[in-house]
Design a protein around this nucleic acid. Sequence first.
RNA 1: CGGAGUAUAGCGCAGUUGGUAGCGCACUUGGUUUGGGACCAAGGGGUCACAGGUUCAAGUCCUGUUACUCCGACCA
Length: 576
Amino acid sequence: MKLTEYFLPTLKENPSDAFIPSHQLMLRAGLMRKTSSGLYSYLPYGLALLLKVESIVREEMNDAGALECKIPLLIPKELLIKSGRWYVFKSELFRLKNRSENDYALSPTNEENFTQLIKDEIASYKELPINLYQINYKFRDEIRSRFGVMRGKEFLMKDAYSFDLDEVSLDESYQKMKKAYFKIFNRLGMNFVCVKADSGAMGGDASEEFMVTSAIGEETIIICEKCGYAANSEIAQEIPFHPSSERGDDDLEKVFTPNTKTIKDVCSYLKADVKNSVKARVYSIYEDEHLKELALVLIRGDYEVNEVKLSNFLQADEIKLTESDLEIEEKLGTAVGFIGGIGLAPKVKIIVDETIAERKNLIMGSNEKDYHYKGVDIKRDLKNYQVAEIYLAKGDEGAKCVKCQADLKKTKGVEIGHIFKLGRKYVKDFDLTFKNADGSEIIPMMGCYGIGVTRSLAAIIEQNHDEEGIILPYNVAHFKVVILLMSMKDEELVDFAEKVYFDLKDNHFNPLLDDRDERPGFKFKDANLIGVPYQVVIGKKNMRLGKVELIARKSQEKKLIPASELLKVLTELISK
RNA sequence: CGGAGUAUAGCGCAGUUGGUAGCGCACUUGGUUUGGGACCAAGGGGUCACAGGUUCAAGUCCUGUUACUCCGACCA
């Protein structure tokens, strides 16, 4: 491609509404333009890169035996009613009506359509297992779009759905996908981790997320570098560090602690370590959108409640931190700021977190204004409570891995892929059964597997850039080589450059020839910005020697080589 | 939805106590220049987000609305 015949509007300055590097660079390097918040138009270069990512995903999916389909973006309401998700999805589902007032949704994901498809077309166990997928747009009315295409209202996603006869076969399908995902993200040049994730409301048995580690990540990941344990903090476990110095068998004692409404206040007033205190949280539990009961959650003072874990434990439709102090004080007869677990049962369900379940000599609220208990022994002093794991793993302060007791690390991640064992959730909703070999009915097991294609492209750029611009991994690059023609005035030089250009073109390097009548510095800046892996500089002095200069974008390493050897050198470089 | 901020040329921004809009880049023309975002000269480009209001006079003051950005809540 000759640049004068291409459409690559680059920007010298960062657009004022972009904050993170990938977003800034995708705009500056002419990949896309914003249409509206969370909606972006891809320009030729951005589309070429997106298609590249898409094709790598497609190749590996096909290689893993999945079969590509394409299903409608408009989902009729009836399909979503069958699975219940017309109601489960709240405002993030885009809903619309046609002229006959029929309801539709813009596809946010597609379990329903694929399950229906299998039900309609497959009746025998002989045709299983099967894995169908598509690479198509998804729509979600995000409460808050941000970071360019990292979280948009519309995005390209690969979604696959497997159907198996039994759990063993499902596991095989799942492992196949997992393996394919490792191949895909490696080919995309990403630095990623596969972490255990919440299967939550989907009710599945297993779920893992593929995360790109990045400071801008919206997820927190807990990692053990020793044994490889890695989990989303939503479900991560850890062994908390307990100070050993204060584990005595003190008697329960009520102490005066005036005006100490926060844990920090109490502990500094009593000169105690926060790790030896108990924090109380009151949650409202909802069922069918009605308040069912309140739950008192007790956790170590320096930990936070993990609402995903709590919600899973309670099997509640919805839980919410009870906001009204008045409601708490009226219903529990306690004083907010001094809430504790002694004497409140059976007015309220009491849940004790694992971080304190075995502890003694703790500080805890007394339910009486301005008084706390000292020397609390959970087992000795509390009654009618349940122990549960509801802490939010912190991955710091000496927290140890539950598997190997090594120190844990915490990092931020962006979710780029998610694999799920769905089990029989959708299959049952759609009444999907097969005839088994012995003539009996069998209910199949389902899995689903997603990859955010647009988000992956953004994540690749987020991980591969420097101050000058994008540094594309070779596999993802559309143009493998950019030819920087130093002067358009010298006909001999132009001819020389064109020869190099056609040579590279014939050998599948898809070169981009910068034939604009611009000064060299201008061309170098743009070449660095758009991230093409190799730059070939065509200058007068070197031409007279029959030579060209080859620059690697990433290392900026320069090599002067005979023009005749360019192909050979490049071929060697990329084979490494 | 709560909190904070922004909206002036294609992009990035300035615009003072209210007096009829400017800078840099980009663009057009001519010239010089040509290995890391050149220089000179001459041009073109604005419903100052929108709607009201105050005023002789509003980019500027007041009220409302919208859009966008950031933090939070949310995210099968």
